[in-house]
Simulated assay, not measured.
Amino acid sequence: MERRTISVTGMSCNGCEQNVESALQNIEGVTRVEADRGGDTVEIVTEDDVADDDIEAAIENAGYDVAT
Rank of each mutant, 00 (worst) to 15 (best):
N14A: 12
M11D: 10
V8W: 02
A35E: 06
M1L: 13
I59D: 09
D54T: 09
G39Q: 13
E60A: 03
V20C: 03
M11H: 07
E2Y: 03
E47W: 04
E56I: 11
E34D: 11
S12W: 11
S7D: 15
D52T: 12
A62T: 08
I27C: 03
D40K: 15
V8N: 00
T5P: 01
V50T: 10
D49T: 09
S7Y: 11
A57T: 12
A57Y: 05
T9D: 13
M1N: 06
S7N: 15
T41D: 08
V66A: 02
N19D: 15
A57I: 05
D36S: 14
D40H: 13
C13W: 09
E34C: 05
G39R: 14
V8Y: 05
A23L: 03
G63W: 06
A57F: 02
E2F: 03
N61D: 15
G29Q: 01
A51D: 15
M11Q: 09
D65L: 07
R32H: 12
G39S: 13
G10C: 02
E28N: 12
D40I: 00
V50Y: 11
V8M: 05
E17R: 11
T41I: 12
N14I: 03
A51H: 09
T46L: 04
D54V: 02
G29R: 03
N61S: 09
E43T: 12
C16W: 05
D48Q: 12
D54S: 11
L24V: 01
D65V: 07
V66P: 01
N14F: 11
V30I: 11
D52I: 08
V33T: 08
R4Y: 05
N14L: 10
A62V: 06
E34R: 14
D52W: 10
N19L: 12
E34I: 10
N26P: 02
Y64H: 00
E17F: 12
A58F: 07
I55P: 05
E2Q: 14
E60Y: 02
I6Q: 07
